[in-house]
Simulated assay, not measured.
Amino acid sequence: MTTRRDFLQKVTASAILLPLPAWVMARQPYDGPVLRVALMGLGGYATRVADAMRSCTKAKLVGAISGTPAKLTEWQSKYGIPARNCYNYDNFSAIKNNPDIDAVYITTPNSLHHSQVLQAAAAGKHVICEKPMALNAKEGAEMVAACKKAGVKLLVGYRMHFEPKTLEVIRMRNNGDFGKVLFFQGLCGFRIGDPTQWRLNKQLAGGGSLMDIGIYAINGARYMVGEEPAWVTAQETKTDPVKFKEGVDETIQFQLGFPSGVVASCLSSYSMNNLDRFFLNGDKGFAEMQPSTGYGPIKGRTHKGELTQPHATHQTIQMEEMAGIILEGKQPIVPVDGEEGLKDLKIIDAIYEAVKTGKKVALKL
């Protein structure tokens, strides 16, 4: 049997060995501002976020938006959401008159993000939007502009930007532990199931694997290397044109070139498992992470040994940190704002152009 004293001794010993993130330290009684959030699109990922928010101190789930009445009823009961804070997609704009809600977190299919972000901004609510932020850079730029005009913040659900092992690799890179960075590899993929799901619908997803799992490799290349790419080349492979119809990519390989000479080789696939891997190589050392972007725990090692930062639910950390960004003006180590999301959309546009033309496409981010 573990006593309270044993537990406290273990926690104290761990605190001496490992620096704990600020959100962990905030487990002490918190009486500061709380971000009151409504989730839009009550699917599987929204449920994951809602469950994770039970452990938050700076963020609280207070509202729900769905086109399915039964889901709204279920969420009212499960998460204690008042009926007055529940909306459907037709009356969503009325959220403007609800002082109980500060921000809307959008977890709907990709093609809906643009219009829903514009609606939320017009209602005067801060917005957190799942990635990819939109279907293309044109939509993304309009979303950034709309939120600026409305005076609200636009954040993107880049949960890995707060993940402790990821941040440790970034710290080591900034500290020069890897020396001159030379190469990055990002492998992201899984075998997708149900052929009728929205992720395989061009109108809803905007593409295929690249618009879903591939964005992790795109974004990961940027934050692992610490530069913005200058060019991209890309190739598409399709083995099942029935399941992966026109405009829905099955597998895309793409290469990024950076101003310093770093090159990145990445792969995005809906037809292979065991691909959740990042590798960063420099002339003095390396970092390898596998899994690198899954829900956790993330595992990794460098030339100095295993990464041992403690695991915590990604969505809990994300919502705590995003509350700090919105309410307190905190600056994250890696940006999560709309401009960050727009850069990834510009790269996605360029990858699809490179696939279509077979040419190297210049990037201006």
Results as ranks from 00 to 15, higher is better:
E340Y: 00
A120K: 03
G324I: 08
K60F: 11
P21M: 09
I101D: 04
R171P: 03
F92R: 07
G189K: 07
L18F: 06
S209V: 03
Q290I: 12
Q318E: 14
T2K: 08
G140E: 04
Q9V: 14
T239I: 14
A59W: 01
A123C: 08
H311A: 09
Q253P: 00
L267Q: 02
T313S: 11
W75S: 02
T293A: 12
G294V: 05
L204I: 07
Y216I: 02
W198Q: 07
M53E: 01
P335Q: 13
F190S: 09
G44C: 04
L342H: 00
G140L: 07
Q116Y: 13
I170V: 15
V34G: 06
D276N: 15
M172T: 03
L280I: 15
V263F: 13
I252H: 01
I325A: 04
L307P: 10
A122K: 11
K71Y: 14
V62N: 05
T166R: 06
G193L: 10
R84K: 14
G80P: 02
P229C: 08
P19Q: 12
R5M: 13
G282R: 04
V336T: 13
F7M: 09
K238V: 15
I128T: 05
D177R: 08
E340M: 02
I213P: 01
F286C: 09
D337Q: 06
V263H: 10
Y216S: 11
E139Y: 08
A64W: 01
L267G: 02
V127E: 03
T357I: 09
D102N: 08
W198K: 03
Q197C: 15
P241N: 12
E320W: 07
Y105P: 00
I215L: 14
P310H: 12
I252W: 02
T302D: 08
V156G: 05
V181E: 01
A46Y: 00
K330V: 09
A362G: 07
L35V: 11
L182G: 04
M53I: 01
D100S: 06
P332Y: 08
N85K: 06
A38Y: 08
G32T: 08
M1Y: 13
I298Q: 00
T251Q: 09
M160C: 04
N136W: 05
K71R: 14
G261E: 13
A103F: 04
K284P: 03
A70V: 10
P259G: 14
D177S: 13
T68P: 03
P259A: 12
E74P: 01
K356T: 14
R5P: 00
P229T: 05
E340L: 04
I95W: 03
W231R: 11
A64H: 06
G41S: 07
N219G: 11
Q119D: 07
K202A: 12
S292V: 10
F244E: 02
S292Q: 08
V263M: 10
Q290S: 14
V225Q: 04
I298W: 01
P332H: 07
G193P: 02
F279N: 06
T237D: 14
C266T: 05
D31H: 14
L39S: 08
R4C: 06
D51G: 09
A70E: 15
S55W: 12
L135N: 06
K356E: 15
E340T: 01
D240F: 15
T313G: 04
Y45S: 05
V156Q: 07
Q309V: 04
Y158E: 07
D100M: 03
T47E: 13
F286L: 06
F279C: 09
